[in-house]
């Protein structure tokens, strides 16, 4: 069997939803274990004294990157069939700012608010209500902003395609970036912990 299984027709839409549910539970579990059910932990990212969010997310990114790349090399995964969210540069930058604003005010991003609700935090639950309200409002006003939402379309984009470099080279540089980012983040943590808490935390 070659992945992606859904694209090759090994199972249908209903079963793919069950798979998605199981993967979702796993995702939520590890977010919780990383401490992402707590708004304090998440928000501390923005004050640079606890860079766990950055580290966990970057770990996830490069783990997935290695997984996809090497499964492709070994002929287990057909990379050309993986779904990419199409790129719309300006709308996605604006969307990123809105999400970031909500993140710093509310202390959660959409996924972590679900995690926090499921471990019984009231603030997470209220955030989740806000998320659904936002989705509803977006859906209602979509006809008015649809022109903007689909502007600056670039279709399916990859880092290596965009930069015209071989895939393997992109993997190598992202790895260096991640390892460098980790080392940098750890130093930053120490500096800001000292600055904010006088070296005791």
């Amino acid at each position: 069997m070659i992945a992606p299984f859904y694209k090759f027709g090994f199972f249908g839409e209903e079963f793919s939803l069950i798979i998605a549910f199981i993967i979702g539970i796993g995702f939520g579990f590890f977010l919780e274990r990383a401490g992402f059910g707590s708004a304090r932990k998440l928000a501390s990212q923005f004050y640079f004294y606890d860079m766990t969010v950055f580290k966990v997310m970057f770990t996830a990114i490069i783990t997935a990157m290695f997984g996809v790349f090497f499964l492709g090399v070994f002929g287990i995964l057909d990379i050309n069939l993986i779904y990419f969210t199409p790129t719309y540069v300006v709308p996605q930058i604006v969307g990123g700012f809105i999400l970031g604003f909500g993140f710093i005010v509310g202390g959660y991003c959409p996924g972590t608010s679900v995690v926090s609700t499921s471990v019984g935090r009231i603030d997470g639950f209220i955030f989740l209500v806000g998320v659904f309200l936002g989705i509803f409002i977006y859906g209602e006003i979509y006809p008015l902003i649809s022109n903007f939402a689909t502007s600056t379309a670039m279709g399916k984009q990859t880092l290596y395609g965009f930069l015209h470099i071989p895939y393997g080279v992109a993997v190598f540089f992202v790895t260096l970036m991640a390892v460098g980012g980790f080392a940098g983040a750890s130093r930053l943590e120490k500096v800001f912990q000292k600055k904010l808490f006088g070296g005791e935390k």
Binding site: I2, I62, F66, F69, F70, L71, G72, V73, G75, L77, D78, I79, N80, P166, Y167, G168, V169, V171, F172, V174, T175, L176, A178, V179, F182, A183
Partner: peptide, 23 residues
């Protein structure tokens, strides 16, 4: 873990392009 990641990165540098693999 960092060293392990860099080793994988170097292997990726030398590996064939998986997008061109035939399935």
């Amino acid at each position: 873990l960092g060293i392990f990641a860099i080793i994988l990165g170097i292997i990726a540098l030398l590996a064939k392009d998986p997008t061109k693999a035939s399935f």
